[in-house]
C-alpha cells in the first residue's frame, strides 16, 4: 500500500451521467497496475491541489474497469463533476473490510438501497451474480427521490431482472411530473409492503443515514435478526489507515474496521454514526 499516503497515478477513462448529480467514473491505470479489492471496500480518490476523499468502489472485482459512482456534494466532488475523460487522478486503496461475501454464501440475499447508496451495493450485487451458484434468491429493493435520480437504470430495469432467480423492485419518493408508472413512496414502507421473508436471508442496506435508520426499524419489525442485517457507515476520512481519527466511532475506525457492519455489531457501538 501507499507510503506517505501518496496516491497511485490513474486516469479517468470514461464518465457516465447517471442522474443530474451522480456520475460514474471509469478509471484506467496506464502506469502501475490497479490494486485488488473486494465488494464494499473503498478507495481514496484525489485531484492534486483540490483534495482527497473516500469513495466506495462501485464496480465488482469480477468485472473491469474499476468504477466509482459519485454524487456531487462537496468541494472535491464539485470539481470531479467538471473534469473531462483523460484527467489524471490519484487513487489509493483498497480500504475497509468489505462485505462478508464468504459468510453470505448459501443465503438468500435482500439488497435495500436508497439514492447513491446503490453504489456500494452494485459491487456486491454484480459480484454475487457473477458467482450465481454460491448464493440463493436475490431481491433488490431500490428507491430514489424521483425517477431522474435513479442510478444504474440499465442494470435496474434490463440486466438484473434477467438474472436467474432475481426480483427487482424500484420505487421513487415522488414522480413530480416525470414519466413513471412504477410504485411511489419511501423505501421503508415499500419494503414492509413487499414483506420479504427473513428465513435464510441476509439483508444488506446502503443509503442515506436517515433511510438506513428506518429500513433497520422495518427489518426488525419483520423479524430479521441483527446478525443478518448488514449496512455501511459513512464518515469523512482523511487518511484511510486509522490515524486521522475522523472516522472513529467507539473503539472502531470505519476505514479499517468498517465501513461494513452487521446490526449486531452496531448495537455495541455508541450512537454517534
Amino acid at each position: 500500500m501507499s507510503e506517505h499516503l501518496i496516491p497511485q497515478r490513474a486516469r479517468i477513462a470514461e464518465i457516465i451521467d447517471e442522474t443530474p448529480d451522480v456520475k460514474t467514473f471509469r478509471v484506467e491505470f496506464p502506469w502501475d497496475p490497479p490494486f485488488d479489492y473486494m465488494p464494499g471496500q473503498c478507495a481514496m480518490l484525489s485531484l492534486p491541489a483540490v483534495g482527497e476523499a473516500m469513495f466506495s468502489i462501485t464496480s465488482s472485482p469480477t468485472r473491469e474497469p474499476m468504477e466509482f459512482s459519485i454524487k456531487k456534494i462537496g468541494r472535491l466532488t464539485d470539481v470531479l463533476h467538471r473534469v473531462e475523460p483523460g484527467q489524471e487522478i490519484g487513487i489509493r486503496g483498497p480500504y475497509g473490510n468489505g462485505f462478508p461475501v464468504d459468510a453470505m454464501k448459501g443465503s438468500d440475499l435482500l439488497f435495500i438501497g436508497g439514492g447513491i447508496g446503490l453504489a456500494p451495493l452494485r459491487s456486491l450485487i454484480n459480484y454475487c451474480f457473477d458467482h450465481r451458484a454460491d448464493y440463493g434468491h436475490g431481491h433488490i429493493i431500490y428507491g430514489a427521490r424521483s425517477p431522474a435520480d435513479l442510478v444504474f437504470k440499465e442494470e435496474l430495469f434490463e440486466n438484473w431482472p434477467e438474472v436467474d432467480n432475481v426480483d427487482v423492485d424500484v420505487t421513487v419518493d415522488a414522480a413530480e411530473g416525470q414519466k413513471w408508472d412504477g410504485p411511489v413512496g419511501f423505501v421503508p414502507p415499500f419494503l414492509e409492503e413487499l414483506d420479504p421473508d427473513p428465513a435464510g436471508k441476509i439483508a444488506v442496506t446502503c443509503g442515506p443515514p436517515i433511510m438506513i435508520k428506518f429500513v433497520v426499524q422495518s427489518l426488525e419489525k419483520m423479524q430479521y435478526q441483527p446478525e443478518n442485517v448488514i449496512t455501511t457507515l459513512e464518515k469523512r476520512m482523511k487518511c484511510g489507515v486509522g490515524k486521522c481519527g475522523r472516522c472513529n466511532v467507539g473503539s472502531q475506525y470505519i476505514c479499517i474496521d468498517g465501513p461494513v457492519f452487521s446490526l449486531a455489531e452496531l448495537e455495541r457501538l455508541p450512537d454517534d454514526y
Binding site: A49, R75, V79
Partner: peptide, 11 residues
C-alpha cells in the same frame, strides 16, 4: 484566488 482558478470552493 488560487481556489477560484481551480474552480474549487475556498477553505
Amino acid at each position: 484566488i488560487k481556489s477560484l482558478l481551480m474552480g474549487k470552493e475556498p477553505y
